[in-house]
Amino acid sequence: MSTAIAEVATDESTRTRRKWNAANLDLIITPTLALVLLVLAVFVWQYTEFDSTTERILEPASLARQMRQQITLSFWSTLLVVSVAVPLGILVTRRGAPKLKDALVTVLGLGQAVPAYGLIVLFFVWLGQGATTAVIALATFALLPVLRNTIVGLQQVDSSVIEAGKGMGMTALQRLRKIELPLAVPVIVAGVRTAAVINVGMAALAFLIGAGGLGETINAGLKLNRPTAIFIGAALVALVALAFDTAGALAQRYLRPRGV
């Protein structure tokens, strides 16, 4: 036993990535753009003379509320997407469900062609106004990337690895938990990241159905012809999206299983 826990000089250099890659660039460019936008927004806020209307639109308390709504809507819809799409993806990749899988991906793919703007309005007509409707509409629109990536992620696992697990007497559930899911995580997380960004974008339209969000500021700016307010609103929406995207990129990086 004691020999088994002896210290090991690990060869770290073999594990660190030598080359920059798209993921690394992501983590530089996204925050850079966010910073530029932030600086611009602060600059505009500081050095523009607000008339009373602009001031009313950009009232800090309502901006804070809209920001909260924006984030909450995005968060809950992403959570809903994950809790529906991942189990569904697992289910349709099990043996005997290839037809169901193809049908599902096709239907959702077609659904993707429905403009987000139209979809959220149709959900409003169907379910009435409010945050719940918005969360459901958002989740529906963002379902495909997570579902597709779950399916792809599970299917790209080297079949000889699963075969080896089966040959050693792992049950189907053990193979799923210990082999397939861990190895699919990078691909699934990439899908969740995409979904989260889509959700932030669509949450900006939630104002259309009375669910708030930063779209309110942009809309008020448009209605009352106040370009400054429009800009501040748009910059804030973009910042939330960029923040979600960066969080996703970080998750992609740190949730990747070691050795892969």
Binding site: V161, I162, E163, A164, G165, G167, M168, P257, R258, G259
Partner: peptide, 15 residues
């Protein structure tokens, strides 16, 4: 679990 199994592609768990 009572029988060892070795395949050509080895199939080591990469993670």
């Amino acid at each position: 679990r009572r029988i060892g199994y070795v395949i050509q592609q080895v199939g080591l768990f990469p993670h």
